[in-house]
Design a binder for these strands. Structure first.
Lengths: 197, 197
DNA sequence: GATAGTTGTAATCGGATGATTACAAGACGG
DNA sequence: CCGTCTTGTAATCATCCGATTACAACTATC
């Protein structure tokens, strides 16, 4: 296997482990086992646990902004890039698709709780600012729409982190909340039930 | 010192530690040092790390619902309990006040990412459902308003977790986002800057 | 003042953790 | 065929983790 392929594999494994166990709780050994390589290897590959987490974080935000950018390009081709409601809806659908990668979203949320960490915290703030600036400057959302979009996203992350879909059938309130939150995409979440990813 | 006072002290210390380091990353020893007691003591006091986290989680949700209940009682006394906008705004202000306890909010968020844990995950889902059911049934919010309220709350948690206020003056976008998110209560967040709590 | 219960700690155990070192197996240019 | 760079692992280290045990100090009740 080529070196960059293996690096990508380890990065995906690290995303899952950091997402489930958090930054402090994740172990380089768990990442190594998940990726099928030795523990010293992942340490040397990234230079340490902290650097590995920064790589996971950067990749997560790159993937989100990459998906958004594809949407914007497509909307521009259709001449609908000025319709703020259409743009928000389109980006929202893309974000829901990203929820399928549980590790990705959870790693992001984990990073968002680390504001007190000197290095990781600064990096996480910078990542969040990148997303906000993208929504305002590239997507063209006004402050109110951008805040609304981000709010909805954070609630989605929470619902995924909690595995709320597991109670979709059994609890009336959960059913109602998820239907309201995901008018057209509930199937994406339901597909995650029982998925140990 | 009385036993229940010391228990409350340990619970507060545990809230701070779990908030900063997450469930897996927190150590009973760190909680003990933070509370000024010995490590075996905190283990025996709660029966183990998991039970201690459940106690932290329950207390956090009780405090939130307690603050909301006080608002509702006050609004009922004024005869304004039917005005959905006034109620939402009032509860929102109470929630922002709770953000002053960084550990409380972060412990909650940490719990919300543990959906895959058999015991803690079920407890966390139940706590979230309690809040949603309270908003719907006691506060009287309709599904859309309840979702909106929760969304805003999750974004607030994220912004606090990231310590975004640290960049309030230095970054134009951050300034704009926080002003929009906290029209009247920005001072509450600004007071948190540099606070190691 | 003896007995029992409560409140707290010191010492310690098996196991895990991040990182370092040393080494093996191949690839590749000369 | 030989030096060297890359890719990977085994062994190991000092440290830390949650939990258990054993024990000390205090309090209350009879």
């Amino acid at each position: 296997m080529r070196s960059d392929e293996r690096r990508a594999l380890v990065l995906e494994a690290a995303t899952r482990v950091f997402g489930e166990r958090g930054y402090h709780g994740a172990t380089t050994d768990a990442v190594a086992r998940e990726a099928g390589v030795s523990q010293p290897y992942v340490v040397r590959m990234f230079g340490g646990k902290e650097a590995m987490f920064l790589a996971v974080l950067d990749r997560a935000i790159d993937r989100i902004l990459g998906a958004f950018e594809a949407d914007i390009v497509a909307l521009e081709a259709e001449g609908r890039a000025g319709d703020e409601d259409a743009v928000s809806a389109c980006l929202g659908r893309s974000y829901v698709d990203l929820l399928g990668d549980r590790g990705l979203l959870l790693s992001l949320m984990q990073a968002f709780m680390l504001g007190s960490e000197p290095v990781v915290g600064r990096h996480a703030r910078e990542g969040f600012r990148r997303v906000y600036a993208y929504l305002r400057e590239r997507v063209g959302l006004d402050p109110d729409a951008a805040q609304d979009f981000l709010s909805r996203g954070m609630l989605l992350n929470t619902v995924v982190g909690l595995r709320m879909v597991d109670d979709y059938e059994s609890d009336e309130n959960v059913h109602e909340l998820l239907d309201e939150l995901l008018p057209t995409k509930i199937d994406v979440l339901l597909a995650l039930r029982g998925d140990a990813t």
